[in-house]
């Protein structure tokens, strides 16, 4: 029997990570343009949240594989169904890739790592350039996908009213 909503733990992780990811995107684009003492603070915060998000996404991928998912509505056109699947896959991929790219680029740039974590990659300037640019560009892609995801969720909840938004609702679920 398929559930009507996501497991409470999955919903908790979703909303916690949603807040952190949105914060990370704003912190990221802000800090690279800032040269006030706020820059220093934002960079430390960015590294700390990034590490937290890496741990959270690993737990989340585990839960996703373990727990059953509520199905999409039956009347959803197949194109939208495929778009939903593809965008979720992309979101998972980026959630995993972004902190790893951050860790990898700091390693390749010869920077000391927070908590004295080991370097993921050798110190290599050209590799650093590649990873640093990928980290920046994929952040824009992630922000765009987050906008699409948010828009789709709101259309499901406010226009189609088909129970999709409610399946990920952060509070207790109302019985119909």
């Amino acid at each position: 029997m398929k559930p009507v909503a996501f497991h409470p733990l999955a919903r908790l992780l979703h909303w916690l990570m949603a807040v952190l990811i949105l914060a990370m995107l704003f912190i990221g684009v802000s800090m690279v343009n800032d040269l006030s003492p706020r820059h220093t603070w934002l960079v430390s915060l960015h590294k700390a949240i990034g590490l937290a998000l890496l741990l959270l996404v690993l737990v989340r991928i585990g839960l996703r594989l373990l727990l059953p998912q509520p199905p999409l509505p039956n009347d959803l056109p197949s194109l939208q169904r495929r778009a939903a699947k593809a965008s979720h896959l992309l979101l998972y991929g980026l959630m995993l890739a972004m902190p790893l790219l951050g860790w990898g680029m700091l390693s390749a740039g010869g920077y000391p790592l927070p908590l004295q974590l080991p370097a993921l990659l050798p110190h290599d300037l050209q590799l650093y350039a590649l990873l640093r640019q990928a980290h920046g560009w994929l952040a824009y892609v992630l922000f765009a996908i987050v906008l699409v995801h948010l828009g789709a969720a709101l259309v499901h909840g406010l226009v189609r009213r088909d129970g999709v938004l409610r399946s990920m609702w952060p509070g207790p679920l109302r019985k119909d």
Binding site: G109, L125, A129, Q133
Partner: peptide, 10 residues
């Protein structure tokens, strides 16, 4: 550093 690393790579 970012700029010269890009130049080195490109």
């Amino acid at each position: 550093f970012n700029r010269r690393s890009r130049e080195a790579a490109q």
